[in-house]
Write a protein that binds this DNA or RNA. Sequence first.
DNA 1: CTGAAAGCGCTTACAG
DNA 2: CTGAAAGCGCTTACAG
Lengths: 338, 338
Amino acid sequence: MSAGRITIRDVATAAGVSRQTVSNALIHPERLKGPTLERVQAVIQELGYRPSSAAQSLRSQRTGAVGFELLAYGESNRNEVAYPFTVALGEMAIGHGCHLVTFSSAGAQSLTEGYADMVRAQVVDAFVIADTHPGDPRPDWLHQAGVPYAAFGRVWGRPDITSWADVDGAAGLADVTEHLLAAGYERIGYLGWPRGSSVGDDRRSGWEHTLLAYGRAPGPEAACEQDLRAATTAAYGLLDEVGRGGAIACASDLLAVGVERAARDRGWRPGTDIGITGVDDSGMAGMFDLTTLAQPLTAIADYLLGLVHKRLEGGPAPESGALFRPTLVPRASSRPGH
Amino acid sequence: MSAGRITIRDVATAAGVSRQTVSNALIHPERLKGPTLERVQAVIQELGYRPSSAAQSLRSQRTGAVGFELLAYGESNRNEVAYPFTVALGEMAIGHGCHLVTFSSAGAQSLTEGYADMVRAQVVDAFVIADTHPGDPRPDWLHQAGVPYAAFGRVWGRPDITSWADVDGAAGLADVTEHLLAAGYERIGYLGWPRGSSVGDDRRSGWEHTLLAYGRAPGPEAACEQDLRAATTAAYGLLDEVGRGGAIACASDLLAVGVERAARDRGWRPGTDIGITGVDDSGMAGMFDLTTLAQPLTAIADYLLGLVHKRLEGGPAPESGALFRPTLVPRASSRPGH
DNA sequence: CTGAAAGCGCTTACAG
DNA sequence: CTGAAAGCGCTTACAG
């Protein structure tokens, strides 16, 4: 516990071997004979030795760190996914033997300046980026700079770039729709965003196709912005159309809260009189007891970190991007007769 | 842009000086004569040179990195503050010339294992910790291990430890109460948490003392858990007591949403018929157009980073912990006749 | 399977 | 005010 760092030299002396044998025990254990390995490992354990990451980085020209830009959102529903994803990245990093260096580009001249800085100062080997969007300059920049990276979110407009993972919104909404069908709700409507948003269109298609697959005409639907007032207003009309005993699948938890409000206003109880579902498993969904779809953030973080790790080892890019199915979180708002 | 890292050697050659002169230009610019300094700086700029942080760390035995543990919350209202705080830390880190290494202790044997690991591997010089609570083992451990740190949140039960910053909840609620008074609401009630939580008691005192200071008897109050249903139920009674034209200051945004619901249920319009305020400026407050108190996260992050930096330089501990006043964010829910 | 050499890119003393 | 030396703690070749 007292200071005076323990170095590889101390371990070597204590174990009666040379320094590189200790190094080998750590990095290439297969190069040592069983007994030697065990002895060295025992000493490492006993002394609580941990190689200095600075020395390792300098020598190996690898930092073992992955950079992740923290985006400053105005929209809070983003925070609700951003934080858990950051935590997931931190949790998975341990298993991949790397550290997470988070940074902000606020105040930077360009959107990629922060990235360039970390690369030049060699503080990270690679990046995970989130919230890719059409026109995002980061994938191109990283690609050209030859810096390994993986993205949470499709890399728009670049079908040649496959190092990404995303949530399968269509599959998620298919699960939601089947769940609502199985629960016995009659008409199943949809409240989404205006057409043209890829994420929104993707989610909506899951609802539509499932209904079609079950021989139902896709019920009533409405679209509004991601705003509580707008959602509440839109919900009034939809509620009339689906009627009591029906359900409304929403593109987001916020929209679902709007539907819940509108239902309450007319005295309909969520679950009992009207089924309501959201997407994201944000805090609001829990507070309002709303059925929702949880994003598989841990699996995605793990996959992404595995991807950059492979690229670092010189492995090939994956054949295609990866889609992860969200998990249905059933709550009272989709429980009939609750 | 092409590879082949630029080292201090390249800069030295190009500038016609020795390597340590380049180093001095970066670290001790006052040691160089004006013209030499300018020439070296010009070359650094031109070549885009950035010292390798690995080499710097190894030599100086300083990583220039600050560790920050990402706590995995179940409670989502925590996420809403945790993420912006993490972002604030990232933003402020630039100005302090350090990097933020975020990590998770999930799956660790003990609550301090993650910290011990990062210290032994020398990946960080210091830590910022958040969410300190009575019985928290981290301050003690860090203290004993001699690792500099600063806490967001008081260090409970250790008046001798002063490296912390916290939000001044009492001052915040005093501002809220004055705001409500100035807006002309008659009776000003309070919806808080059961007594005994230091944060809750602190906030409540701001409301009580302000009312007293204005010669008003502290109005009706109620307490409930941090739960929407409980808040809504508690709000019904409070609403009766304060009456139309009154206001209810709440200990959190969630409780405020409960009040808003209860008010809506009886047809009272927030702002017009009843004043409502929350605390935290979470996403919900924005969605429900609720007046709230924004935490001064950027100022706190900056202060905390400054603190660890000073400790690293061997400076003294501050005289006492620092309290930061939150900022009132006025919205429709406290605007009479809105 | 194990060990002596060289060096990653800096900075911290110390001479000049 | 500037420069030649030494070394931070490792790992990567390469001998033995």
